[in-house]
Nucleic acid binder design. Structure first.
Length: 499
RNA sequence: GGCGGCAUGGCCAAGCGGUAAGGCAGAGGAUUGCAAAUCCUUUAUCCCCAGUUCGAAUCUGGGUGCCGCCUCCA
């Protein structure tokens, strides 16, 4: 394996090599927990989930840390609005975050530190910076003196003298006056009236935004980590400031690889809270978009490029997933008919795929899939290989669902089983898992629904027999709009599945 | 103004110097109820101009357009 990744730090695609063989330490910038997550967040965490799964499949021991920013102006504003405490807002949204990410099949990070619970590390890092003369305190605030850091700007490739400082004129004049330079940023903010605060050597206050990540990386993973992840909008100033703080405090390079994902766009513009053009993950899932559809949608584009969110592209992903899903379900639902070994999805190990590639064609697909991911996580190509693998399986699946299965000789059957296993394994690296369509419904709805559908099928059959196809089609369309798909089989029988 | 990214068929999207993956939609054929679902087949010379090269969507230079960051942001 030779994984190559685009490193924002060097502006190049370079071979990935971990500091310790077989071990990868990753830190991923998490969310500020003041609200539900939107599709942009989903993209970020799904993409990095694939990176993680891929590394694990390549036998790396991965330690994945991701933070929660649980103190911030927006959380406080939300708390004031909802007349509750900051902690209540944070707790609630952390729960919601997990709910969404679990639904999307994003593996939970190994640890998820919260800013308010890492204050010792934060304070001691600020003290260290102060001792080194890289930080100064003014009236309860502490600022990082950017000019002390000779390499400032190395990540975002910026010359500070060329920047339009505070471009929007959104300058807090009081704060500006306290700073030695307009580019300096807060490490610690003195407490304001009525806001939650924490004790420190500089008085009551709270940490600035950037310092928590620096402190957590050190606390959880050490001075230098393999990979630091985040959205492209964090490159400046957040990651630049992290580098400045950590490298000044520790005297060591913060991260070997900096990876950044592209934004999700709506009508060509970045999806963001402030523009109000966001769609939450929750709304999408509730609206009937399946988690795996979102995964396909996101992974069909390269992670660094902007991704336009439109109804059309989502529909396309949905149709594509439907196709793939049929194939992934094949061996689960039909193993008896096909005489395939019973297969439990939960037990599919994503690091256990080598032995499945038994023939030349499958070995080729397998290799192409791995090569694609090696090449800076080309998930788009990886997915295309899943579709190639799926084609004959799709054919088989439809024979089973709709017709009498044709006789397959033993050799073919075995090859198809192997192909299916490979498909399941490779899909697993992308976090794509079968979503079983229900042809039996939960007990609660069973009586209501099943008999209703049965009745509808009966009426439709009568309509068909009497030649009233318009009526038959109306019934079919009506059920379809309710997620029930009718399938006319040979011999006049009608089956149904719920999508 | 500074830094960075992008421009490929109706839509989304790969491609990293040797002659355009994949998905969706469309078309034709099979099947069917002149239907749905399904299966098979099928559709591009890559924003413009100039250059390098035997050969460029891919490299260089110059345009044009769009976007991101410089302020909270995945």
């Amino acid at each position: 394996m030779s994984l190559k990744l685009t490193n924002t730090l060097t502006k190049r695609i370079e071979p990935f090599k971990s500091l310790t063989p077989g071990q990868v330490n990753i830190y991923c910038c998490g969310v500020t927990v003041y609200d539900l997550c939107h599709l942009g967040h989903a993209r970020s965490y799904i993409v990095w989930d694939v990176l993680r799964r891929y590394l694990i499949s390549q036998k790396y021991k991965v330690t994945f840390i991701q933070n929660f920013t649980d103190i911030d102006d927006k959380i406080l504003a939300r708390a004031a609005k909802e007349n509750c405490t900051m902690n209540e807002i944070s707790d609630k949204n952390i729960k919601e975050f997990h709910c969404d990410m679990d639904a999307l099949g994003v593996l939970r990070p190994d640890r998820m530190p919260r800013a308010t619970r890492c204050l010792d590390g934060i304070r001691s890092m600020i003290e260290k910076l102060e001792k080194k003369g890289a930080a100064y305190s003014v009236e309860g605030d502490v600022y990082f003196a950017v000019k002390k850091h000779t390499n400032y700007g190395k990540l975002s490739n910026r010359d500070l003298s060329e920047q339009q400082l505070n471009a929007d004129g959104r300058v807090n004049e009081k704060e500006e006056a306290r700073k030695q330079s307009p580019v300096d940023f807060a490490l610690w903010k003195g407490a304001k009236e009525g806001e939650p605060s924490f004790p420190s050597a500089w008085g009551q206050g709270r940490p600035g935004w950037h310092i928590e990540c620096s402190a957590m990386v050190l606390q959880e993973l050490g001075e230098t980590i393999d990979i630091h992840l985040g959205g492209a909008d964090l490159i400046f100033p957040h990651h630049e400031n992290e580098i400045a703080q950590s490298e000044m405090a520790n005297g060591k390079e913060l991260a070997k690889f900096w990876l950044h994902n592209g934004m999700v766009n709506v009508d060509g513009q970045k999806m963001s809270k402030s523009l109000g053009n966001f769609t939450t993950i929750r709304a999408l899932l509730k609206g009937g978009i399946s988690a795996m559809t979102l995964r396909i949608f996101i992974l069909q584009a390269h992670y660094r490029k902007p991704l336009d969110f439109t109804k059309e592209s989502l529909d396309a992903a949905s149709q594509g997933w439907k196709r793939l899903n049929t194939c992934l379900c094949l061996g689960l639902n039909n193993h008896k008919v096909l005489d395939w070994p019973k297969h439990d999805f939960q037990e599919t190990s994503i690091s256990d795929i080598d032995k499945h590639a038994t023939n030349e064609t499958l070995a080729k697909y397998h290799q192409q899939f791995l090569d694609a991911l090696d090449e800076d996580l080309n998930t788009s190509v990886a997915i295309s290989i899943l579709f190639e693998l799926a084609r004959p399986l799709k054919s088989l699946a439809n024979q089973l669902i709709r017709d009498i299965p044709q006789s397959i000789n033993e050799l073919e059957n075995k090859a198809l089983y192997t192909r299916w296993k490979l498909l399941v394994s490779l899909a697993g690296i992308l976090g794509l898992k079968a979503e079983q369509p229900h042809n039996s419904i939960s007990k609660k709805e069973e009586n209501l629904n099943a008999s209703f559908i049965k009745e509808a099928i009966k009426i439709r059959k009568e309509a068909k027999l009497s030649g009233d196809f318009a009526k038959a089609d109306r019934i079919r369309e009506k059920l379809k709009s309710q997620g029930i798909e009718l399938i006319d089989k040979k011999g006049g029988e009608t089956d149904w599945i719920q999508n």
